[in-house]
Design a protein around this nucleic acid. Structure first.
Lengths: 210, 210
DNA sequence: TTGCAATGTTAGTCACTCTAACATATGTCA
DNA sequence: TGACATATGTTAGAGTGACTAACATTGCAA
């Protein structure tokens, strides 16, 4: 099957390859998938190794420890989240209320579709959240939200502090995402439409009451 | 030191007691403290055993597995949370806006002072959150919030749906609590006063804008 | 008092993280 | 080209923890 077999005899090819080629990425890929499906607690380096077809000592050539690979997974998660937030806005236009609401809904959808990953990104392990790369991408995402709010306020003659509004919206949307994936709403308000919840709360938090 | 030494010789007292007396509670106590301080991921049954002075097999007479003891810890956490919410309202009077705000602030304070426990209670492990006892106490807590909102609305001639308002307030407050303990605000809005954040968002979410 | 159920203990299995010592591939420079 | 340094694997093994099976001790109830 491989090119090697054409020119070499069996004895010289005990395994396909001694070096994997791109083990670092392969391990992160495996971890990423596993975390999304089963959560970070249940993820084991050993599993990822089996998946990549290497020994359980191999990862330590690329990562300091288990946490370091999870930090990488976390960073990828923030990239995906930011991308889907931008994409959601794209469908409704920059600086529109609909765009801002869609961003919040996309945030919740991300949490629902990547439960374990979302939990890893937010709070699972404080030390992971503090990794420089992770912090940076998170800030980008928040910065984009501020941008949208600023544009909306300018277009609608509002003089709200965009940073304050962004903080409130993020807080609300993050709360919704957390409670949904924890199933907490189910016991208390069964059948709740979370997309609707966000759509109705967003204007309330954008405009000061009274 | 012990009473036993008065009436028995050394040979008959290899250990203080063969039976612990109240191992179940002792293990939960140890776990509770450990989870608050270091989080559920780092908690080990073995640690709790050392703490209680028993072998590592002993817990299995009282708990099916590690998760079952964590579920018990979780239930205690919800009790504490509910109690502090009620106490916060008590200081400002039933059905007052101040009471409702204080309840939210107490929720955040609980999260800050019991980080690992809060994470366990919300989302760490879906299977734990589903334990009957845990669900029940959680519902009590939410029910109390609805009660306060209903009273407030009645006293102020508002016809809001108390359940909707409660859901929004909980969502916001839970988001704030989560983001605070994850340190997420620090990177984005350093120096944020979360108590103030809740105080300013609560009226917005209680009264429909426009 | 006798015997059973409850609650401990020891010993051992299995999985996982991580390290040390060794093996093999890769790339660079004389 | 070839030799050496470095990168990237491997095997073996230490240390820890969850959990189980078989056995020991204790307390309670008939």
């Amino acid at each position: 099957m491989t090119l090697d077999t054409k020119t070499e005899n069996a004895a010289t090819v005990p395994k396909a390859k001694y070096h994997h080629g791109d083990l670092r990425d392969a391990l992160i890929d495996a971890a990423y998938q596993f975390v999304i499906e089963s959560g970070a607690e249940k993820f084991s380096l050993a599993d990822a190794c089996r998946c990549a077809g290497v020994s359980t000592a191999a990862p330590y050539r690329h990562f300091k420890d288990r946490e370091e690979i999870l930090a990488e997974v976390c960073a990828r998660g923030f990239h995906t989240l930011t991308a889907s937030a931008r994409s959601a806005v794209g469908k409704h236009g920059e600086g529109t209320l609909e765009g801002i609401i869609a961003m919040g809904q996309a945030y919740v959808a991300f949490a629902v579709n990547h439960q374990g990953l979302f939990r890893l990104m937010f709070g699972q392990n404080p030390s992971i959240s503090e990794v420089h790369k992770v912090v940076e991408i998170g800030n980008d995402c928040f910065g984009y939200l501020i941008e949208q709010i600023t544009k909306y306020c300018q277009a609608n003659g509002l003089d709200q502090n965009a940073n304050d509004v962004a903080t409130k919206l993020w807080t609300f949307v993050h709360g919704a995402a957390s409670l949904v994936i924890d199933g907490k709403y189910d016991h208390v308000t069964p059948g709740l439409d979370v997309g609707e919840l966000i759509a109705s709360a967003t204007p309330q938090l954008m405009v000061q009451s009274t």
